[in-house]
Amino acid sequence: MSESTIQIALVLPDLLGTYGDFGNAVVLEKRMTWRGIKAEIVPINYGQPVPDSCDIYVVGGGEDTAQTLAVKHLREHPGLQRAVTKNAVVLGVCAGIQIFGESFTRADNVTHPGMGLIDSTSHAGGSRAIGEVLAEPANGLFEGVLSGFENHQGRTVLGPAARPLAHVKVGTGNDGSVEGAVQGRILCTYLHGPVLPRNPQIADLLIEWATGVKPAPLDLPAVTAMRAERVKAAS
């Protein structure tokens, strides 16, 4: 594969693809190809080794057993962890935020080791957080509100090395106050929707990290209209 093609690894879509998060990879690919940046999606299925050579890794949400299997697979085939040391960009959604941390504890009180990529721990909350979320960007990381749909029982506590992605205005996020995590070039969120079709500014931030260049503006009227609708519905 030529050096100039940005490879987007879609990590374990067969285990972590319950909530349409495959769409995040599509959005990254299209937003690059439409701007003349060569990009391709590389699906990595359960049972396959995880390459460390991709530029962006996209990890989605999954059911409990699938999540346990996924983390086992990713620890046995640590391509993603190696890629992180080489400055790869990583998007982790829902299960992603939990398995990237130091550990996650389920409702049955069993604690599973995470991948140790971000300074966080997760545990099961009392009730399932389901519904539309609105959050304001933290640390000036991006512009415009963060919009998405959450459906999770996990609650996540960030350590000092991880920064929140956003401050929750509507919904629950990590703990009712902050949402997501950013550490180096790893960006995590609880939000589906999927998150990148809803938040093109986050997609472009990841593209900027991967290519080293701020991408040219891309006006998609449908995206603007949908964001406005969702923000209004959640407010």
């Binding site: 693809g17 349409g20 495959f22 999927p194 079709p197």
Partner: peptide, 9 residues
Amino acid sequence: GRDLSWLWD
């Protein structure tokens, strides 16, 4: 279902 994420599947 209020969540339309499935449209991407």
